[in-house]
Design a protein around this nucleic acid. Structure first.
Length: 571
DNA sequence: GTGGAATGTCATCTG
DNA sequence: AGCAGATGACATTCC
């Protein structure tokens, strides 16, 4: 800025005496007046077709909540097997049916169900391949659901038939406490506790699948947990509940946010993937401006290319040094004359256009053939020698029109330079390294006004390129962010799909265990050959695969203990 | 004539 | 200290 302080008033046309501090609007207005006189109504003609393209269509993956609902059955809190058996407080009529008590629980999983429904609605709307058929299987009572039909023993059930349940007796089971977990063993043994070892001769699926009592309980559908609240909560830890209430709500809300944003990640992704190859401006290293300059030097005006400019000899400046910028007012043909590596205004427009309309990306390959351009602020002499008028001008053949055309191609600074008879090109003024630039200035006898103009031209030209680079970077940053958002949304959708799959399989397993439980329990007989009351006894799986028949009260106590443990851990 | 997008310019900061 | 680049803000141009 210091070199501007010694500026002096130069000509009547151009106010060159102003330093940057006083380079105010009025001064610039004067310059504009001069420019207008020089250009005489010049018109710019390098607009990019389709520049006014619509903004990127933001088709929603999800178009809103449909409110689709599912049958009432819902995988709510999961409790132990023992909870599946009605307690003594249940209605008396339940004892006639082993299963019916399970259905009468007052526990209402409605809230969780609602969450689940919301989730599923979102999932379906997002076309995440959760077809309705599976959903129905998941969330509605299957036709053969034992919960909705009277329980009947299936003779050919896969449960281990060797379990000698018929020998179970109320009095002779206390010795089998060892089958319980230590926690169970620590419990005070009920006075008449009945522990019936149901150790299968072979390791059953139950043995391998369910390592502990509470685990077995996990696989029971919520219907089996109906007595949980009524029986003062022998509830066991419920991993599904955790999934469903907190995380599920979060995900649902996040998904809603994504929906409301209206962002179409697919389009943005396609756009980004195509565009990214040509854009070197980004946040991360993979999309850094330097990558642009290395991969596409023709359109780069990055700092890296600029630094190479500094190291290049002045003789090769035109080839390498021009940190590419091509003014809108320059002829495109001049680009070949100078062969400069230059930033293309068309490219900038393309960036914006492609950002707004991915369909425009089909034009991307053309960028590779964009001529290199070093002709920013090319001197009039150079223009005269190198410029080829457009066909229309040639047809008209008028020198006057050629002159008009050339005037049109010149930037304001070029006009100023010509008016001030600057003996070298604006291109050199702007792009020469400092040393070479000073050397060039020293070669000529220049007035203060000329020096001032030259330095202004250099400053403005460099800043112009910097601004263009800055805007390109900004655009690229936006594109990269959009791509990141799209990736995250894709991951999220995938995780949600997986979650649904896990929940589905979990529910199926719970139903299997429930059926097995009912079958085993229904076959149990006491010494008198009568079936055990589900309200008084419950089956319990031990960690070693054995199955025990224990009093309901003891089972409830265990269930409560199992439930407290995870809660304590959270604290 | 107007609005918005694109582009240019300036001021300022940073390396 | 000087320079070049980056960037926000504003101005101008263009459609």
């Amino acid at each position: 800025m210091g070199w501007e302080s010694h500026l002096t008033a130069a000509s009547a046309d151009i106010d060159l005496g102003a330093g940057r501090e006083i380079f105010d609007y009025s001064h610039r207005q004067k310059e504009q007046d001069v420019d207008k006189e020089l250009q005489d109504g010049a018109e710019q003609d390098d607009t990019w077709p389709g520049e006014g393209a619509e903004a990127l269509a933001r088709n929603l993956l999800v178009d809103g909540e449909t409110g689709e609902s599912f049958p009432a059955q819902f995988p709510a809190d999961i409790s132990s097997l023992t909870e599946a058996v009605p307690s003594e407080s249940e209605s008396p009529g339940l004892q006639n049916n082993l299963l019916s008590p399970l259905l009468t629980g007052t526990e209402s999983p409605f809230d969780l169900e609602q969450q689940w429904q919301d989730l599923m609605s979102i999932m379906e709307m997002q076309a995440m391949e959760v077809n309705t058929s599976t959903s129905e299987i998941l969330y509605s009572a299957p036709p053969g659901d034992p919960l909705s039909t009277n329980y009947s023993l299936a003779p050919n059930t896969p449960i281990n038939q060797n379990v000698s349940l018929h020998q179970a007796s109320l009095g002779g089971c206390s010795q089998d406490f060892s089958l319980f977990s230590p926690e169970v063993e620590s419990l005070p043994v009920a006075s008449s506790s009945t522990l019936l070892p149901l150790v299968p001769s072979n390791s059953t699926s139950l043995n391998t699948t369910f390592g502990s009592t509470n685990l077995a309980g996990l696989f029971f559908p919520p219907q089996l947990n109906g007595t949980a609240n009524d029986t003062a909560g022998p509830e066991l830890p419920d991993p599904l509940g955790g999934l469903l209430d907190e995380a599920m709500l979060d995900e649902i809300s996040l998904m809603d946010l994504a929906i409301e944003e209206g962002f179409n990640p697919v389009q943005a992704s396609q756009l980004e993937e195509e565009f990214d190859s040509d854009s070197g401006l980004s946040l991360d290293s993979s999309h850094s401006p330097s990558s642009l300059s290395s991969s596409e030097g023709s359109s780069s005006s990055s700092s890296s290319s600029s630094s190479s400019t500094s190291s290049s000899a002045s003789s090769s400046f035109s080839e390498e040094g021009a940190v590419g910028y091509s003014s809108d007012s320059e002829t495109l043909d001049l680009e070949e004359a100078e062969g400069a590596v230059g930033y293309q205004p068309e490219y900038s427009k393309f960036c914006r256009m492609s950002y707004q309309d991915p369909s425009q990306l089909s034009c991307l390959p053309y960028l590779e053939h964009v001529g290199h351009n070093h002709t920013y602020n090319m001197a009039p002499s150079a223009l005269d020698s190198a410029d080829m008028p457009p066909p229309s001008a040639l047809k008209k053949g008028s020198k006057e029109k050629q002159t008009d055309f050339l005037d049109k191609q010149m930037s304001r600074d070029e006009h100023r330079a010509r008016a001030m008879k600057i003996p070298f090109t604006n291109d050199k003024i702007i792009n020469l390294p400092v040393e070479e630039f000073n050397e060039l200035l020293s070669k000529y006898q220049l007035s203060e006004a000329q020096l001032s103009l030259i330095r202004d031209i250099r400053r403005r030209g460099k800043n112009k390129m910097a601004a263009q680079n800055c805007r390109k970077r900004k655009l690229d940053t936006i594109l990269n962010l959009e791509r990141d958002v799209e990736d995250l949304q894709r991951d999220k959708a995938r995780l949600l799909r997986e979650k649904v799959e896990f929940l589905r399989s979990l529910r199926q397993m719970k139903q299997k265990v429930q059926s097995l439980y009912q079958e085993v329990f229904g076959r149990l007989r006491d010494e008198n050959g009568r079936p055990y009351s589900p309200s008084q006894y419950a089956l319990q799986y031990a960690g070693d695969g054995s199955v025990l028949l224990i009093p309901r009260t003891l089972a409830d106590q265990q269930a409560r203990r199992q439930e407290r443990k995870p809660k304590d851990r959270r604290k």
